[in-house]
Design a protein around this nucleic acid. Structure first.
Lengths: 198, 198
DNA sequence: GTCGTTTCTTGCCATAAGACAAGTTTTGGT
DNA sequence: ACCAAAACTTGTCTTATGGCAAGAAACGAC
């Protein structure tokens, strides 16, 4: 029995290729389900990270800076794959923490299983390559789009791109993602609501 | 006749795998040589980017911001592969400009040729995957390491990591890479030389 | 429902970096 | 070798954001 939502996600992410039922089955069978409650960790610093599909929920990826503050690197919402490339591909202890902001459900797999598929199944190769390329591209775009912007512009961008995150994440987490202090974010929000009122 | 330096680079970048001579040959034959003089472009915004190995020289990757200023995204030095993932993998016009800071020599190939190898040659698959993962990881590390640092710390880091760049790039190009104006970089350099004198 | 903890907001002051403009040095073309 | 253009430095003033501390609001455990 293939995992419906995962199978659908895989097929739909490379529409140019028609996946055979057998291939889809083989791929989905390499995955197992996971569940997380709010605040539980999908990946903790020091562990070897897997390959995750997030079916439902919100996650936050953060690291610690030199002073021990949490710095949010990314927010993840449903219907995407998640992996720490450094840890997953090179079997290194991760430096990242991926924590549930809400209840989450999804599927995960390991490097071993997916590496077999990578060599045995052309369709999976295409999928895997598309995923890493896509992740790389979006991280790059996200990073570049923050350049030469004021904190207020970065805030406005996030509001447009991912408004839901303000419902599920704390302001301190969002502030560190925007590269500012929670104090500054608080002021930006105040000034912003003045502006949008008039 | 395989391209010696490229063959050596490929083999040495995944030492766990012993490349057969035939595979190495097939891979190298997919590449052709290129030469650039200072200021010439390896890739221009709007074109479809290829897959490049830089054998010798220094390159700079930059984009234009909304005000038309050049923003340096990366500096590249010899013995590495270079590609714009968004353009190379998805055949989209690139938004990046890759320009020679010095005379450069290297080899390039196209998506078509390398995609064939990707599916036909397991060793090349490993290589290609290692390269994109490595690029992704270093871009991530580079980005993250700039967080919560002052301009002066970012400058000091670059001096340690890539001192040679100060010999080949203009200060304005380095300043935009560090996320500051050339004015500020000039002052940082002055203050820095006071400090290191005493 | 109450109390303690955590999160968020606000005020005041400090500081890193930018904007602009003028000067100096370096570079490159003829 | 000379001149013009480009690259770099410096001065003065402005501004965005941070640091710290106090208060207000929201949340969670019992």
């Amino acid at each position: 029995m293939p995992i419906e939502s995962l199978a659908h996600f895989i097929q739909q992410s490379i529409p140019q290729i028609r996946f055979s039922a057998a291939a889809l089955d083989r791929i989905c069978n390499a995955f197992e389900q996971y569940d997380l409650n709010e605040k539980e960790f999908l990946l903790k610093e020091g562990k070897i990270g897997g390959y995750y599909f997030l079916e439902e929920g919100f996650l936050r990826n953060f690291i610690y800076d030199s002073k021990g503050n949490e710095i949010t690197i990314s927010f993840y919402k449903a219907q995407r794959v998640i992996f720490d490339p450094s840890s997953f591909f090179f079997s290194k202890p991760s430096t990242e923490n991926i924590q549930a902001l809400t209840k989450c459900v999804g599927y995960f797999s390991t490097f071993e299983k997916l590496n077999d598929l990578f060599h045995s199944t052309p369709e999976f190769r295409e999928f895997a390559r598309a995923m890493i390329a896509k992740e790389f591209v979006s991280f790059k775009i996200e990073t570049i789009s923050k350049i030469n912007k004021t904190a207020e512009e970065r805030y406005a961008d996030l509001m447009i791109r991912n408004k839901e995150i303000f419902q599920v994440a704390q302001l301190k987490q969002i502030a560190s993602y925007l590269g500012i202090t929670d104090t500054s974010l608080s002021r930006i929000r105040r000034d912003f609501s003045y502006k949008t009122k008039n």
